[in-house]
């Protein structure tokens, strides 16, 4: 199934939940809205043609440049992306989904952006979403156990955000 066909098919089925696509990229991707990702994923997993039963990876990418001069040249508004890499053990094909989120929910600094959890679709997502939450600061709604996974529970901040600053001190240990 070509990429164009797939995008059309998904758009037909999910309408506004498919918010865009880039088929020219090295790894073509489809953009899904934060509220529809679980539904779309469930369809992708169960559809007889696609059978994308393996969730390879969920990554959080933060787009933000502190320097306003450089930010103006960047060509994008600050945002956070959650990228889903799927593949199928039956058809041996892959797919990339993206959810584009604001860096902070309602642009209130400190309130994490929210996206539906797909932990109910693939159990892999459980830990991957915890990691994205831990390092990139994205809240996955409906996640059964959204806690930090790599950093200590009481760690402050989300290290893979571009505006992250290493704490000066952590439990008496010098940070910088």
């Amino acid at each position: 199934m070509s990429g164009q066909n797939l995008v059309e098919r998904l758009s037909q089925r999910f309408g506004e939940k498919i918010t865009g696509s880039n088929l020219e990229a090295i790894d073509p991707w489809i953009e899904v809205s934060a509220a529809g990702i679980a539904e779309v994923c469930e369809y992708l997993r169960d559809d007889a043609d696609l059978q994308l039963n393996l969730l390879n990876c969920i990554s959080g990418v933060d787009y933000f440049i502190a320097d306003p001069k450089k930010a103006a040249k960047a060509g994008w508004e600050p945002h956070t992306e959650v990228v889903y890499h799927l593949s199928s053990t039956f058809n041996k094909h892959t797919l990339v989904l993206k959810v584009i989120l604001p860096r902070w929910k309602g642009d209130v600094e400190g309130k994490l952006p929210e996206v539906q959890s797909v932990a109910g679709v693939w159990s892999t997502a459980n830990w991957h979403e915890r990691e994205v939450f831990d390092l990139s600061g994205v809240r996955f709604t409906g996640h059964p156990n959204l806690r930090r996974i790599l950093c200590p529970e009481d760690w402050v901040g989300y290290p893979l955000r571009k505006d992250y600053e290493m704490p000066l001190e952590y439990h008496g240990i010098r940070g910088r």
Partner: peptide, 18 residues
Amino acid sequence: WRVRARSSCFCNLSVTSD
């Protein structure tokens, strides 16, 4: 801009509890 390593053991280990 960003690198991400998808670890195989990370996923393999997540099955331990079950």
